[in-house]
């Protein structure tokens, strides 16, 4: 076990994947609790499709992927939130529109330029090799921001998530908090996308939150369990991916599925006994 760890960490790409992956999973889990409880689970999925379109555009333009993807996905997240709250189109319908639309645009751009190749495959399903040094730096900065904001606004995030009407009525700036959560989610998605794949990144947002909600009965324990589950699943998933050469995104999601089942069964058993 220790030897395996030593061996893995001699490869710089594995070190990068572990560091960035852990931080991204942690951030996604924290934001995920609030998103899942507010019924915004699909925002993550929608944004990752937008991210796919943006990466395709960046490749076509020969631009740095992050420089193109970050502003586009951030803009999309604000747009989705706005549509969900203000427009006559329902939130879920709006997300479906934007996500399939940008996926289609991405596919068109790719087919008109390089054609479908390995890069596209990696965008869709993720690759363990994809994390660059600058990605890791970005992941460290981002997670520092997410953790700091989450701790400082913890009580207000609780209040807005539990009962937005009450929070607004008693002077909490719910609109501002919602925007902050959407922006941070967009950043987490863009960063995590190349490791997890555009099709799977939203699992990092929904799985840990839903898993811990099988068992936990307070907001605080849900947050703590989600963080731990997310990090442990990333570690096991990356190790599996390294050992068996499986796609990293899918391996991590499989670990999350197992965790979900375990928590679900324990939850069921304790409820029957109670």
């Amino acid at each position: 076990m220790l030897n395996l760890l030593k061996e893995m960490l001699t490869y710089p790409f594995m070190v990068r994947a572990f560091v960035a992956g852990t931080l991204i999973a942690l951030c996604a889990a924290l934001l995920g609790v609030s998103l899942v409880l507010k019924r915004y689970s699909m925002i993550g999925d929608g944004l990752s499709h937008v991210g796919f379109g943006a990466l395709a555009l960046a490749t076509a333009l020969n631009a740095a992927p992050m420089a193109v993807a970050i502003p586009i996905v951030v803009a999309a997240s604000v747009l989705m939130l706005w549509i969900a709250q203000n427009s006559r189109i329902n939130g879920d319908a709006a997300i479906a529109l934007i996500s399939t639309g940008s996926m289609a645009i991405g596919v068109m751009i790719i087919s008109m330029t390089n054609g479908m190749n390995v890069d596209v495959y990696n965008y869709l399903f993720g690759s363990i090799l994809s994390m660059s040094g600058s990605d890791v730096t970005l992941a460290i900065c981002l997670s520092a921001v997410v953790l700091l904001l989450f701790i400082l606004f913890y009580n207000r995030i609780f209040s807005v998530t539990f009962d937005e009407s009450f929070a607004r009525a008693t002077g909490t700036n719910a609109g501002f908090l919602n925007i902050v959560i959407a922006l941070l989610t967009a950043l987490v998605i863009v960063l995590g996308m190349r490791m997890m794949g555009a099709l799977l990144i939203s699992a990092l947002i929904v799985f840990p939150a839903l898993t811990s909600m099988r068992l936990c009965k307070t907001f605080r324990t849900v947050i703590l369990h989600s963080s731990v589950i997310a990090v442990v699943c990333i570690w096991i998933g990356l190790t599996l991916s390294y050992l068996f050469g499986t796609p990293s995104g899918a391996s991590i999601v499989i670990c999350n599925i197992i965790a979900f089942c375990v928590y679900g069964l324990i939850g069921l058993a304790t409820r029957k006994n109670a």
């Binding site: 009580n155 539990f162 929070a167 909600m213 936990c216 324990t221």
Partner: peptide, 30 residues
């Protein structure tokens, strides 16, 4: 914002994991 408000219960609250203490304390935020 000093008005104590009791809104109608929402769908979200039906499966929300929160302790009574967490909910009550959130009234002090203002």
């Amino acid at each position: 914002s000093d008005i104590g408000y009791l809104p109608q219960t929402t769908q979200v609250q039906k499966d929300f994991p929160a302790s009574v203490w967490e909910v009550v304390l959130s009234g002090c935020l203002n």
